[in-house]
Write a protein that binds this DNA or RNA. Structure first.
Lengths: 186, 186
DNA sequence: GATTTTTTTTGATCCATGTCAAAAAAAGAT
DNA sequence: ATCTTTTTTTGACATGGATCAAAAAAAATC
């Protein structure tokens, strides 16, 4: 739990009370490799934080798995569309390694919104993520495969080091054969 | 101003007081075709609503204009990264047609956060936009040029009808020659 | 540590999209 | 209405990345 507190402390100063509320309302989980944290068709009422390990978000398209992102230590993740639209998820979230997560449910997040520092943090986080996705989309669309790879190396080095070739290729929207060739003559 | 109120009313019920606050704090502007609403290097402390007309967001990359999105009537726009990071904008926002906008400055948005319905609306809007971008990114990355075009026709028909070929091609990350050919044999 | 399964690499070929150049069409200016 | 500028279309050719198949390497299992 300390790890989440440290992370939030980078953005806002949490006092005793805020920390105790957080400890009361955040839930820790332990997952094996390849376990499903969220399956398609489920509702998604949680936002998770990766304490250790790595998780992959993907969906099925014409029977094939399309990986959209991989989250490593100290990142938050959820099915953005299912969480915010309160709809059934078409995204699947699965661990890639043995993983420890900390999660806040929607209910608890409402309770936490009585703690001003948490609200501030949530707003900052939201803005960051929003701006981040906006940025990535823009950049990505204009890049060829090699440029995309270099960009990912810069913004997500852990993912590039640890994730399977096929997953990374899927995120980039190219085949794994092409990614293999790019890596060879980089 | 009524148009903005109507729009917000689709999501939350605004009472007399909320409406009067909004009218006091929202600013209307009129722009000619091709005017710059936001230039590169400026700070961006506003969120705009398109009352009529059309605006284009783009940035420069190797001296070339890369269009990232075009907003039509009843859409909100801002430089997401500059607004949320409070940084200098690398995005440029320009009108494509004579355009009427309504904007809320950051200061006024803080004042408006005393009106609970507005806060609710802001949160909903934020979630929508976030989920929307997330969705688009995912979809787009896996599509070929023709599929992207069909997708845009579905989610942004006005833009496809009214915007210049070159702008749309840029959003799609393809050349305008290719888009011209796609349109021909669609 | 040998065997099976999964993942990555390599090769050959094909196709979608890019590039460059020029013509045609449309929009804007006088 | 005519002329000029901008935008869109068309053609010829080049190329990045896809596809299919198979080999090599790495990881998991017994």
């Amino acid at each position: 739990m300390q790890q989440l507190i440290d992370y939030i402390n980078q953005y806002v100063r949490l006092n005793e009370e805020a920390i105790s509320e957080l400890c009361k309302l955040a839930e820790q989980d332990l997952w094996n490799k390849n376990e499903f944290i969220l399956e398609a068709g489920q509702r998604c009422n949680k936002i998770w934080f990766v304490k250790s390990g790595m998780v992959r978000k993907f969906h099925l398209f014409n029977g094939k798995e399309i990986t959209t992102w991989i989250h490593c230590e100290n990142e938050f993740f959820t099915s953005v569309s299912a969480y915010f639209h309160k709809s059934l998820s078409n995204e699947i979230i699965q661990t890639c390694e043995p993983t420890e997560t900390i999660c806040i449910t929607r209910e608890n997040s409402i309770l936490l919104s009585k703690v001003p520092q948490i609200v501030t943090f949530t707003n900052i986080l939201m803005g960051e993520q929003f701006a981040g996705i906006d940025q990535n989309t823009k950049e990505f669309n204009m890049m060829n495969a090699r440029e995309k790879y270099k960009y990912l190396q810069k913004i997500a080095p852990e993912m590039i080091k640890r994730a399977k070739l096929g997953y990374i290729a899927s995120i980039m929207g190219i085949t794994q054969e092409t990614l293999s060739r790019i890596r060879k003559r980089l």
